[in-house]
């Protein structure tokens, strides 16, 4: 089964603020921008809950003082969202034992990591596909070595 675990900051995200300010200066009119780390895992059903527990216990992934960890119901980007990953990165099926920060992930047969950007227009509405595309092309993705999924 596919399980997507999202880790975002509960404290102000300076990186997202810098990206938002830069995008506005470049003419991409967004009201807000949020960022999260995503771990998209193909995991055996029996190990899915244990996977979340392992990530919660991994302090380089999740610090309860500053992070929020949640399991996403969807395996794809939502409205106003774009996922960025590096081309050729991740651990595809058959690539051997998979781990995060040195911790083995039992039952996980494939792992992809993304940076998720959530873009908002005025009134906390998800940004339009055109705005997402403009932000992606202008700043969020370097297509020379990154891939954007929206």
């Amino acid at each position: 089964m596919i399980r997507v675990i999202e880790v975002s900051l509960a404290i102000p995200d300076n990186e997202a603020r810098t990206a938002l300010a830069t995008l506005r200066r470049l003419g991409v009119e967004l009201a807000a921008l949020e960022r999260a780390d995503l771990y998209r895992c193909d995991v055996a059903e029996a190990d899915a809950d244990r996977l979340v527990d392992i990530l919660r216990a991994c302090e380089t992934v999740y610090n309860p003082n500053k992070h929020v960890l949640r399991v996403r119901a969807d395996g794809r980007p939502g409205p106003g969202e774009v996922w960025i990953d590096e081309i050729g990165s991740g651990s595809p099926p058959g690539s051997g034992p998979i781990s995060i920060a040195g911790r083995p992930l039992p039952g996980v047969v494939a792992l992809e990591r993304f940076t998720a950007w959530r873009l908002f227009s005025q009134g906390d509405r998800p940004a339009s596909a055109a705005l997402v595309s403009a932000a992606t092309e202008t700043l969020l993705c370097n297509p020379a070595f990154q891939k954007a999924t929206s």
């Binding site: 300076n14 990186e15 810098t18 990206a19 830069t22 200066r25 700043l139």
Partner: peptide
């Protein structure tokens, strides 16, 4: 800019 977004990405703009 702390390599925010990507190394060099913010400064480039």
């Amino acid at each position: 800019y702390e390599d925010r977004v990507r190394a060099g990405a913010i400064a480039a703009h």
